[in-house]
Write a protein that binds this DNA or RNA. Structure first.
Length: 241
DNA sequence: GCGACAG
DNA sequence: ATCTTGTCGC
């Protein structure tokens, strides 16, 4: 059994969940339209005991990508385990197509976990996406895991500015629908953009994210995953040059 | 054509 | 996302 703090190097550039052939942007968008049919915004069966966070970073040349996941107990917020993997970057960044770049490496990292979390926070949008399939939703479908999108900025939609106080929130509207919410996780800092990914609802999102805070703007599972992915990138840099 | 645009 | 200097606040 791996211990918290360990991380792993592993080639994860092959076997993207959408197939062997490299996808073009039009094909990727078409695939999103198909996969969106599988998104289910149902409540969590119970209060989660394990909450994970998933984040990915690329190297400067956009050749490699590093994905990490960190799992904490909830609501105690004690680190249970974490995993990180590296791979070839499978897709360029394109607005609305982020999941084709990051979902494979994040899925690979999650599969290294000894136990799946009850909820996974993902650094990106859930259904607040042009085709209803942001990174959190796509990853949730791939892993069949409850996911919540926790983005640091807005992709689409309109929302009022939440009050400066911690916990203030406003609805994120798009096409006459509430697709997410804007949440002030710390007094006076830029708010986060939450939207359900898969097998979870917007209503439970606020309490869960607020319950994962430890005095910073980002919830702990995401902070930890961010740190770990960067740590793996630095490690791989030191091996190469 | 113009502006917007997760990471 | 990355690059990048100093700067402000705890």
């Amino acid at each position: 059994m791996k211990q918290a703090g360990d991380f792993y190097l592993e080639a994860a550039g092959e076997g993207e969940p959408w197939g062997e052939r490299p996808l073009g942007a039009p094909e990727a968008r078409a695939l999103q339209e198909v996969l969106r049919q599988r998104v289910r915004l149902t409540p969590l069966p119970r209060r989660p005991r394990l909450v994970g966070g998933a984040d990915a970073v690329c190297d400067r040349e956009e050749r490699l990508i590093f994905g990490a996941v960190a799992v904490f107990t909830y609501p105690e917020l004690e680190l249970v385990e974490e995993a990180a993997v590296s791979g070839l970057c499978p897709f360029p960044y394109r607005t609305g197509l982020l999941s084709f770049r990051e979902a494979p490496i994040l899925a690979a990292a999650c599969r290294r976990l000894g136990r799946a979390p009850d909820l996974l926070l993902v650094d990106g949008q859930g259904v607040a996406h042009p085709r209803g399939l942001g990174l959190a939703s796509h990853l949730g479908i791939l892993l069949d895991l409850p996911t919540l999108g926790v983005a640091k900025s807005r992709l689409l939609g309109e929302a009022g500015e939440p009050d400066a106080a911690q916990g203030s929130q406003t609805a994120l509207m798009w096409q006459e629908q509430v697709v997410g919410l804007v949440l002030r996780t710390r007094t006076g800092v830029k708010p986060l953009y939450l939207s359900p990914g898969h097998r979870c609802t917007l209503e439970e999102a606020v309490d869960l994210v607020m319950g994962c805070l430890k005095g910073f703007r980002l919830p702990e599972p995401l902070r930890r995953a961010d740190r770990l992915s960067r740590k793996l990138r630095a490690h791989c840099r030191s091996l190469t040059g």
